[in-house]
């Protein structure tokens, strides 16, 4: 049984004409021990997906099974308990509480569990040892470098031995050296059997993952198993999306530059039509490979459905 099972999960924001479909009948299952990287352009629904999986947000439709139990419709306080015990968050901006020391920050989830101060500080201390920051216990968050702060945040996410760790662009605010340290730490945690869900824009980071999910317009448009250490193929393409402008493109003019802007059909019209996707129920795998060949146009067709 999968650790996480999303069944046709949709999330809508707003009302009437202003309704935005942030997640569009997403079907996803994640096994225990996977390191899943989630990629996709801004506004593709990555963060909404993370929020739904992290129980910060409720799906409008669909069901979400965590460890076989449907948690999507639980009451807020029950969801808070599930977050506390089963989910660890790592945010892009660390989100450490400025007034608490490093040790207190790491121990905070245990405080909400009702553990006595001595025991929780002992445990927090052990976890800090694990991320190599034992000697920073009594520092305040502002005295830490970005990399250290993010490692503290990871320690905080780990302290309750969660089923899954959700890292939303954990290296977004870090330089490459700190990024590497943080990613190596996450890889380490993964090797110890933890499940990790990583949102990233950086294709290099897919080297740490053994599965990469591509999202676009609220849908999962690609799902690729990769070997750890190799960059995902699809990711490489996203990598070059911020593109080099070729002579052909210059000849084509503005329409070529618009090719990758979601929702614009200029490039599609500019080229001769390609065979359309046959139906919705393709396997994710096939879709991914298809998409890799077809490029961005394929995605748009899928979106139009």
């Amino acid at each position: 049984m999968a650790l996480i099972e999303l069944k046709e999960v949709s999330k809508l924001y707003g009302f009437g004409d202003a309704t935005v479909l942030a997640l569009d009948e997403v079907v996803l299952s994640i096994e225990k021990g996977e390191f899943v990287a989630v990629m996709g352009p801004s506004g593709s629904g990555k963060t909404t997906l993370m929020n739904v999986i992290g129980l910060l947000d409720r799906p409008t439709h669909g069901s979400y099974l965590l460890d076989g139990r449907n948690v999507a419709r639980r009451r807020p306080n029950q969801q808070a308990r599930v977050r506390r015990d089963r989910i660890g968050f790592v945010f892009q901006s660390y989100n450490l509480l400025a007034r608490l020391s490093v040790l207190e920050n790491v121990a905070l989830p245990l405080a909400y569990k009702g553990m006595t101060p001595v025991r929780r500080q002992k445990r927090a201390s052990d976890i800090l040892e694990l991320v190599g920051l034992r000697d920073r216990e009594y520092f305040m968050p502002r005295q830490l470098s970005g990399g250290q702060a993010q490692r503290v945040a990871i320690a905080r996410a780990l302290i309750n031995k969660p089923s899954i760790i959700i890292a939303d662009e954990p290296t977004g605010n870090l330089d490459s050296t700190d990024s590497k340290v943080v990613m190596e730490l996450l890889a380490d945690i993964h090797r110890q059997g933890n499940t990790i869900l990583l949102v990233t824009h950086n294709p290099e980071l897919t080297r740490y993952a053994n599965r990469v999910i591509y999202m676009h317009d609220g849908m999962i448009v690609g799902d690729e198993q990769t070997a750890i250490g190799n960059m995902a193929k699809g990711a490489r393409r996203t990598h070059y999306q911020k593109r080099k402008v070729t002579d052909d493109d210059i000849a084509e003019g503005v329409s070529a530059l618009m090719r990758d802007v979601p929702g614009k059909e200029l490039s599609a019209k500019a080229r001769k039509p390609r065979p359309r996707a046959k139906h919705k129920k393709r396997s994710a795998k096939r879709l991914a490979s298809h998409r890799l060949k077809a490029g961005s146009r394929q995605r748009r067709e899928k979106t139009r459905k």
């Binding site: 992290g54 968050f89 905070l108």
Partner: peptide
């Protein structure tokens, strides 16, 4: 507000 958000994300209940 942000602090409240973080506390809730790491598992604080409304009551807490």
């Amino acid at each position: 507000t942000r602090e409240i958000g973080v506390r809730k994300a790491i598992g604080a209940t409304n009551r807490q």
